[in-house]
Design a binder for these strands. Structure first.
Length: 426
RNA sequence: GGAAGAAUGGCAGAGCUGGUUUAAUGCACUGGUCUUGAAAACCAGCGUACUCACGUACCGGGGGUUCGAAUCCCUCUUCUUCCGCCA
């Protein structure tokens, strides 16, 4: 959620920046409406405060009059307060209405893209910021996509998931299960080595947390919801981990706050079917190791670069061909100011699969979270939040299976062998 | 799941027979005096949000009673203790 004060200061440049997300002048008029509502808010609040002040004074007086036995004067004052009270009730109703329309509007405005973001309509306009320089893997005759390999080596089974739960819930078995656990440990160890504190968070979150990181109200349909307890299954560890710092004022010297967590992630992915979602390409439950940083605004982009380097290192150690994209305005998520997507090449499907997304949200999340720090003057300021996947397992496994298939079986990259305890899936 | 009790500022802890209570007191913290320096002692300061300001709001959350609520009532949440169940 954007800060009204910043909108006030930057209304023209904000409208200009929002064009990168495909916002025209008509849409950007909402910025002015926000300011108008905020002006209205100030007026109403000040008026109401004055009435409250009068009421407080009179009430105090009534107390004194009663004490000194002046019953009649006290009763006269009482009736005065009565009329004040009805005005207050009226004003407060207006304030509530005004503020909720203000908040509603603010929830419709996405984050302002970073200055380096280009205009674009969809993922086709994303900028390749670092391409894969080497040759793409070529596979032998009769190479299989990962879902066929899964059947051949009995490493994961989607039909079994359908039986137990429904479509999109893979069951990993044998060396597939071990590979899964190995990747989790590998990613967590790498994150720990890079200075991230490991967290094991709850997998269900309350409404306030989902709102804090922006899943509500923007992406309500994406999450599984447990109605009986009013809880949401997390779509990413970002939600519980970032919310550790909801309503907190941290000290500047605590920066950078670096957290990592492995969790299973649950996404309803409503309405997505077809070839793109075959096998492990898109599932309802998957495993992901998330890295989260909370930083001083001056350092958040340097932190973003380090996070990108971290993810890059992981892909190099896993010997996967990858490229890095800088998302265009149209593909940028609602809350993000700048996002790098990582894609690995899946040789049998002959397509790039998104395996990581690293973003700087600047103050967009922290404003909702009320996540602040004290500056040198002792003033509270909003911190910057960042996060990234390091990494999402399902698609890594898909690419690894396809790219590394040999006559001997599926080769496990060296860096992972000490975790798996085997060199081939056969 | 059943019963009882509790929730106050960074922490501890008064107030809770409604009226100079943003809220005693102690600790912690910040600045100062003193000191060669430190400690101790003493003095002062010490929450958040909105507002240009006056001011207003906030004693777990929400609602109510009242001229006036930390204080009374309802409700939700959380915690503690006891009982039951359980990996």
């Amino acid at each position: 959620m954007l800060e009204v004060a910043r909108i006030r200061e930057n209304i023209d440049s904000y409208a200009e920046s929002l064009k990168k997300r495909g916002w025209d002048a008509e849409k950007s008029a909402v910025l002015q409406r926000v300011i108008d509502l905020d002006d209205q808010r100030k007026v109403l609040q000040t008026d109401n405060d004055k009435l409250l002040s009068q009421r407080n004074l009179l009430s105090k007086e009534i107390g004194n009059l009663f004490k000194s036995g002046k019953q009649e004067e006290a009763n006269a004052a009482k009736s005065q307060v009565e009329t004040l009270k009805s005005s207050i009730a009226e004003l407060e109703a207006k304030i509530t209405e005004n503020n909720s329309s203000l908040e509603e509007l603010l929830f419709t405005i996405p984050n302002i893209p970073h200055e380096s973001i280009v205009f674009g309509k969809s993922d086709k306009d994303n900028v390749v910021s670092q391409d894969w320089a080497g040759p793409l893997p070529t596979l032998p005759e009769g190479a299989m996509p990962h879902w066929d390999l899964a059947a051949k080596y009995d490493i994961f089974n989607l039909e079994l998931g359908v039986k137990i739960t429904g479509a999109g819930f893979p069951v990993f078995r044998k060396k597939g299960a071990k590979l899964q656990r190995s990747l989790i440990n590998f990613f967590l160890d790498e994150a720990a080595a890079a200075g991230y504190e490991e967290i094991v968070p709850p997998l269900l979150v309350n409404e306030a947390s989902a709102k804090g990181t922006g899943q509500l109200p923007d992406k309500e349909g994406q999450m599984y919801y447990v109605e009986k307890d009013n809880l949401y299954l997390i779509p990413t560890a970002e939600v519980p981990v970032t919310n550790i710092y909801r309503n907190e004022i941290v000290k500047s010297d605590q920066f950078p706050i670096k957290l990592t967590a492995y969790t299973q992630c649950f996404r309803r992915e409503a309405g997505s079917y077809g070839a793109d979602v075959k096998g492990l390409n898109r599932v309802h439950q998957f495993d992901k190791i998330e890295i989260v940083q909370i930083e001083h605004p001056d350092n958040s982009y340097a932190a973003l670069d380090k996070m990108v380097k971290h993810v890059e290192g992981l892909l190099q150690k896993l010997e996967l061909p990858y490229r890095i994209l800088r998302l265009c305005g149209g593909d940028l998520t609602f809350a993000s100011a700048l996002t790098y997507d990582f894609e690995v090449y899946s040789a049998a499907q002959k397509r790039w699969l998104e395996v990581s997304s690293v973003s700087n949200f600047e103050t967009f999340q922290s404003n909702r979270l009320k996540l602040r720090y004290k500056d040198e003057q002792g003033k509270s300021k909003l911190a910057h939040t960042l996060n990234g996947s390091a990494m999402a397992l399902a698609r890594i496994i898909a690419a690894m299976l396809e790219n590394n298939q040999t006559e001997q079986g599926i080769r496990i990259p060296k860096a992972l062998q000490s975790y798996t305890g085997f060199e081939y899936i056969d």
